[in-house]
């Protein structure tokens, strides 16, 4: 029977085109980009071999340190925020709204399908201070406090970025985690209720352990996505004021295309790739160990 489904010509016709396109446009450029890390210059001016000078620069570059630190801070805050709120929403859907959760789920999910640029421009207006106070500053004024120049300082700009991205994605994580929670058998919950464990204890000892696998995958997806953040921050703050909200992706984009340093840009991209790979492997390993224990 295996021979029937093993015709080599058919395999070549079916998988060949995809493999060729994928190899030429993604795999080859990855290695090409690795090669760039040893050069300086760009496609227009030409290249010059510099050995490992780009990596030496990378280690000593305070802008890279800042961008790296921002990327990590962003990934941590957003991951905690969106997974925690998403989990809260999932619990709300399963235990409070129950059969009536469909409409709320659908509504809260919606912002994730919106273009990040549109959402960012909307949040610029919501948090505006000039020429007119936006919604947020107007509300702050109602409570008697002064308007805040949200985008005038890296710290407050970070708060707006965090609020925006969590607003956008919490409904998505709510649905993702909801799918894991509804799979907990009703009789397990019922017997726990009969045993008299309600609220916190049930959450801690039954719901949380049973939904741990889906929670871990949500965390992996979230970190993997947030480390690569680009659109939303570029459109909201453009990495500013100064470079105070620039993650590695924006720093890479600017060194490459604003300053035309392809070699250095590729080195920054490589750093980002390595971090993404490392984080995924570490979390994956850690979660597997924990799951076999528990």
């Amino acid at each position: 029977m295996e021979q029937v489904l093993g015709d080599r010509k058919s395999v070549a016709i079916l998988v060949g085109p995809a493999l060729i396109v994928y190899s030429l446009v993604m795999l080859v450029p990855v290695f090409w980009s690795l090669g760039y890390t040893l050069f300086e210059g760009n496609a227009v001016t030409g290249f010059r071999y510099v050995g490992f000078a780009n990596f030496a620069d990378l280690i000593g570059d305070s802008k890279v340190h800042d961008a790296l630190w921002f990327t990590i801070r962003y990934a941590l805050v957003i991951t905690v925020g969106q997974v925690l709120l998403g989990y809260g929403l999932a619990l709300l859907y399963v235990f409070v709204l129950r059969r009536y959760s469909s409409l709320v789920r659908t509504l809260v999910f919606f912002p994730i399908v919106l273009p990040t640029v549109a959402v960012a421009l909307l949040f610029q207006q919501l948090f505006a201070v000039a020429p007119q106070n936006g919604v947020v500053n107007s509300l702050i004024n109602v409570f008697g406090a002064d308007s805040i120049d949200w985008f005038g300082d890296g710290g407050t700009a970070f708060i707006v970025i965090a609020i925006m991205d969590i607003w956008r994605s919490m409904g998505f994580y709510g649905v993702l985690l909801y799918a894991g929670l509804v799979e907990i058998p009703e009789d397990v919950l019922e017997s726990a209720r009969i045993d008299g464990s309600g609220g916190w204890r049930m959450l801690r000892h039954i719901v949380l352990p049973l939904s741990l696998p889906v929670l871990v995958s949500a965390i992996i997806f979230s970190i993997n996505g947030t480390l690569k953040v680009f659109d939303s921050i570029l459109a909201l703050t453009n990495g500013g004021p100064g470079t105070s909200t620039s993650p590695l992706t924006i720093y890479m984009f600017q060194t490459s295309f604003t300053y035309g340093e392809y070699g250095y840009g590729s080195s920054v991209a490589l750093l980002l790739t390595i971090i993404c790979l490392m984080v995924t492997v570490v979390i994956f390993r850690a979660s597997r160990r924990d799951l076999t224990k528990g």
Partner: peptide
């Protein structure tokens, strides 16, 4: 390919 950040292929593609 799902893992690789887009930044890693941008510059060679731009050159091509």
């Amino acid at each position: 390919g799902i893992m690789v950040p887009m930044q890693m292929i941008l510059l060679p593609l731009f050159t091509i």
